[in-house]
């Protein structure tokens, strides 16, 4: 084999390896839960992976959408049932219930107080930080349709997508978590 051909082959292999290594370490998450504790875990992991220079995709579906709603979300222009669902669900990360010890909303207040005392970063700030560092959030179109949630009801910088968008990201990751 000619030396120039050998060099070209090595370069080509190097490029292919770089693609594989990049794929290997991405993180994809499905956030289905709207529970405060689970959403906290999701965003802590997203931030950690971003700090490790990974590409992170979070597919947000069903109750998870509560975590990325704007607190100013309005019921105008929605059907009666959509309004009912909206009234009964939290409006944004500041209102999420805990999965255990919710005690009709007292639990989350207690946890937030205790976490603040221990200087743990708040959920809204973790969300803002992850978006700043390049977290890609894909909101599930189908769940949004079911609950009458519009793109403008969600925080800025989110994409809208479906299962294929999630799978596409997942196939390019070596870690996929369902939360």
């Amino acid at each position: 084999m000619e030396q120039s051909e050998l060099v070209r082959k090595v370069e080509e292999l190097g490029e292919r390896l770089a693609v594989l290594e990049k794929k290997k370490s991405n993180l994809t998450m499905v956030l289905l839960s709207g529970d405060f504790d689970r959403v906290m875990a999701a965003f802590i992991m997203a931030n950690g992976a971003l700090a490790m220079n990974k590409e992170v995709t979070m597919f947000v579906t069903f109750w998870g959408l509560d975590a990325i709603k704007k607190s100013t979300i309005s019921t105008s222009g929605k059907t009666f049932l959509e309004k009912m669902v909206l009234w009964m669900r939290p409006k944004g990360p500041g209102e999420l219930p805990t999965s255990k010890m919710n005690f009709a909303g007292i639990g989350p207040k207690l946890f937030r107080y205790m976490m603040g005392k221990k200087n743990i970063e708040s959920l809204p700030s973790l969300i803002a930080m992850s978006l700043e560092l390049g977290l890609r959030i894909i909101a599930c179109q189908m769940s949004m349709d079911v609950m009458g949630i519009k793109k403008e009801d969600l925080i800025d910088d989110v994409e809208i997508g479906g299962v294929a968008a999630f799978l596409g990201a997942s196939y390019e990751s070596n870690t996929t978590l369902f939360i």
Binding site: I44, G48, L50, A51, K118, N119, E121, M129
Partner: peptide, 12 residues
Amino acid sequence: GMTCPMPIMKIS
């Protein structure tokens, strides 16, 4: 005084 994940975020 910082807790997970902040030290790693700040290092990064």
